[in-house]
């Protein structure tokens, strides 16, 4: 199961990297979203997949699954959600004022 997860993480990272390297802003933002999914799965995998019971006292006598990776992922998901939402708004405003969504046209001219 772990190897499968690691393969999935690898696929997601390569997809994300490919998207980030493109010139279109929306693709880049989607790429960062895919990358963040990849790292969430990575945290889950390296933390150890289901190795025991639900970590509730009284539910079973153990061994329990480590619940911490899930707490970390939850926090990271919220943060990446907020950042992606902000990025999309920023990209939209940038598109409205600069009139382009192609990053190679966003270098800035020396005469500005």
């Amino acid at each position: 199961m772990e190897s499968l997860m690691v393969l999935l993480v690898g696929v997601l990272v390569s997809v994300g990297t490919y998207l980030i390297l493109s010139r279109n802003i929306i693709r880049i933002i989607l790429g960062t979203a895919v990358l963040s999914h990849a790292v969430h799965l990575l945290i889950l995998t390296v933390g150890g997949l289901k190795t025991g019971d639900v970590p509730l006292l009284g539910h079973s006598s153990g061994p329990y699954t480590d619940a911490l990776p899930q707490a970390l992922i939850l926090t990271a998901i919220v943060i990446s959600f907020a950042t992606t939402a902000f990025l999309l708004v920023l990209a939209y405003r940038m598109y409205k004022t600069n009139g382009t969504d192609d990053v190679s046209e966003l270098r800035g001219m020396p005469d500005e």
Binding site: T32, L35, L42, T83, M94, L106
Partner: peptide, 24 residues
């Protein structure tokens, strides 16, 4: 807006590397 978009993107990718480091 142009420069802030670059700044945000670079920091998002950096935070991503931070999470990888934390995972390992």
């Amino acid at each position: 807006l142009r420069e802030s978009l670059k700044y945000v993107l670079i920091n998002v990718v950096t935070s991503w590397i931070f999470l990888i480091a934390l995972a390992f």
